[in-house]
Write a protein that binds this DNA or RNA. Structure first.
Lengths: 154, 154
DNA sequence: TCAGCTATGATATAACATATCATTCATAAA
DNA sequence: TTTATGAATGATATGTTATATCATAGCTGA
C-alpha cells in the first residue's frame, strides 16, 4: 500500500481509538478497498474487490456492518443517492466535520467532495432551521456532469 | 375525489397536453394515489394503494414506467435518498421549475417541499458551476426531524 | 480460565429496480 | 370501415441493494 494510504490508515486507527472503538483488521481492509478505489463502490462491489485484493471472502452482511462502523467513525460516507460508499477525503486533515458536499458525475460515476463557501452553507442551514426543521444528516449530493466528461463530449 | 385534487388533475392534463403527451387513465390514477397520500410512497406502496383505491391491480413494472412518465412531466418527484415518490406540490401554480428542495423527516417520514431563498440557491449553483461541474439534476434532499416531531419529543 | 461482550459468519428474505418480450389500445391513413 | 403503426401496458424473470436473525469466534478483564 502507498505511503499515503498508510498514513490515512494510521490516522484512522488513532481516530477510532480516541472514540474508544477498534479498527479491526477486517474493518481496516474494507477501508483500504475504498481508499484504493477512484470511484465510489456499492457494498457488493466491496465484497468483490476485497476478494481480489486480499484473496479472502467476506459476507456482504459483514461488509454492511463494517460500513456502518466506518460511517459512524466518519471515515466513510454513504452516497444516499447512489447507494454507494466512498472514503472520506479529509481523514488526515484534522477537519471539522461540516456538511459534506458531493458532486456526482452521472457520466463517469466519479465523485468530488467539495467545499462550498462556508457562508453559503450557513445561510442554507439557517434558512432550513428557520422553518422549524432540525437538520441531522447534513450532507449535500448534487448530480451532473463533471469537468472532464464535459470536455470530452464537447 | 376532492375539488382540490380534481383541479390538480385538470391542470396536469393540460400540462401534459401542452408537451404533446397523454395523461392516460392509469397514469392519472397513479398520480391520484400520490395526491391522496400525506407521505411519500415507494413504487410497491403505490401498487398496494392502487389496488385498495381502484379495486384493480397494476404490475410494479407499469408503476415504474408511469412514475418515469410523471417525473418527466414534472408532476412527481423522486426522493432519491428515500427511494420514494411524491407528487409535486406546485402543479397548479404555474411555477418555474427551479431546484426543488425537500426536508425529509426521519422520524415520521413526512416531507416538506420548501422554497429556500432564491439568492441562496443561486449562490450555491454558482459556486458549483465555478468548479467546472455542470449541474443537471438540481434537487436538494435534507434529512432531519420536522417541527411536529421535535415538539412531540420535547 | 471462563464469563461476558463485541465482532463476524451463515442463511434467509425483504425491498427496490430493470430487462425483455408479448399484448392491447388509440389513432390516423387507406 | 379497415388496417397499419406506434405508444402504452402486461407478464415474467431477474438483478441489485439492504436487513433480520441466529450461530460462532475471538478478545478482554475478573
Amino acid at each position: 500500500m502507498t505511503a499515503d494510504i498508510e498514513k490515512i490508515i494510521a490516522k484512522s486507527q488513532e481516530s477510532c481509538a480516541s472514540t474508544g472503538n477498534k479498527l479491526t483488521n477486517k474493518r481496516k481492509k474494507v477501508l483500504m478497498v475504498l481508499l484504493n478505489s477512484a470511484l465510489p463502490l456499492s457494498a457488493y462491489d466491496i465484497v468483490d474487490r476485497y476478494k481480489e485484493q486480499f484473496q479472502e471472502s467476506l459476507p456482504v452482511m459483514s461488509v454492511y456492518r463494517m460500513l456502518d462502523f466506518l460511517i459512524k467513525e466518519k471515515l466513510v460516507h454513504k452516497l444516499e443517492t447512489a447507494s454507494q460508499y466512498i472514503s472520506c477525503s479529509h481523514i488526515t486533515c484534522n477537519h471539522q466535520h461540516e456538511m459534506p458536499q458531493f458532486l456526482i458525475c452521472d457520466r463517469c460515476g466519479g465523485v468530488k467532495e467539495v467545499g462550498i463557501k462556508k457562508a453559503i452553507i450557513e445561510e442554507l442551514e439557517h434558512s432550513i432551521r428557520s422553518t422549524g426543521f432540525l437538520l441531522t444528516h447534513k450532507q449535500l449530493e448534487l448530480h451532473g456532469i463533471c469537468k472532464q466528461c464535459k470536455i470530452q463530449s464537447a
